[in-house]
């Protein structure tokens, strides 16, 4: 069953067309990796899925709800879709624990004790339970990104979106974040990951897509994508990045 379905999605920033008609489907439990050169529209596309950006044409259906301007729909979808950003975007004035429990308490209306218990569980899962009472500014980049993953998971989302989660990290911290993501993928979470980490794509992804200039130019299983690329653009991209 497809949990995300997009049909001919188009998006303009002023005169510049960022998305030139993307149609795709994601099945429940699938891990999809989107790669492509910068400016190819891949980030814009996943930001359209939880309406951080508005698409102007086409339709996006998430978990059976179509994304329109209806605020109720948008809030409903956003609480089902977790998102991890390139620049973490943790709330600097709140502790790690407060960062994670904020949404469960205020959006899901859960009790504080229940949310904190759940938050500790998630922090253990991403491997930093001892940092709960610190502020984000006191953590390393890798730790911050793992807190961001825990924060998104605290809402118990059905889908997780990752927008270049490792691009702002030092090389030695990338691994800890990727490990957390792998663990998540193995647990059966539906994930869309925009990344340049080809190792991650090979190992974890069910499907890999290449975006270029607002279009999806290739879509394939990882083995086929890396070993036997069909499109010339893919060949060029792979030769540059590998």
């Amino acid at each position: 069953m497809s949990i995300i379905k997009t049909n001919d999605v188009k998006k303009w920033f002023g005169d510049f067309q960022a998305l030139k008609g993307i149609s795709m489907e994601v099945q429940e439990g699938e891990v999809l990796v989107i790669c492509g050169p910068s400016g190819s529209g891949k980030s814009t596309f996943i930001r359209c899925i939880n309406r951080l950006e508005q698409h102007q044409e086409g339709e996006i259906i998430v978990d059976g709800i179509e994304l329109t301007n209806d605020l109720k729909n948008i809030e409903a979808i956003r609480s089902e879709v977790g998102m991890v950003f390139q620049s973490f975007n943790l709330f600097p004035h709140l502790t790690v624990m407060q960062n994670i429990t904020l949404a469960p308490i205020w959006v899901r209306k859960k009790s504080r004790s229940e949310s904190e218990e759940k938050a500790m569980e998630l922090l253990t899962r991403v491997g930093i339970p001892e940092q709960a009472s610190k502020f984000p500014g006191q953590l390393s980049g890798g730790q911050q990104q793992r807190v961001a993953i825990a924060r998104a998971l605290a809402m118990e989302p059905k889908i997780m979106l990752f927008d270049e989660p490792t691009s702002a990290l030092d090389p030695e911290m990338i691994k800890e974040v990727l490990d957390a993501m792998k663990e998540l993928a193995l647990s059966g979470m539906t994930m869309i990951v925009v990344t340049h980490e080809m190792g991650f794509a090979k190992e974890v992804a069910d499907r890999v897509m290449l975006f270029d200039e607002g279009l999806m130019v290739e879509e394939n299983t990882p083995t086929e994508f890396f070993d036997n690329p069909q499109n010339d653009r893919t060949k060029l991209f792979l030769s540059q990045i590998l």
Binding site: E75, R78, F85, F91, V107
Partner: peptide, 14 residues
Amino acid sequence: PKGQYEAADAIGMS
């Protein structure tokens, strides 16, 4: 920063 608004949006806050 804009990211703070986006992060709050993304976890479904009103």
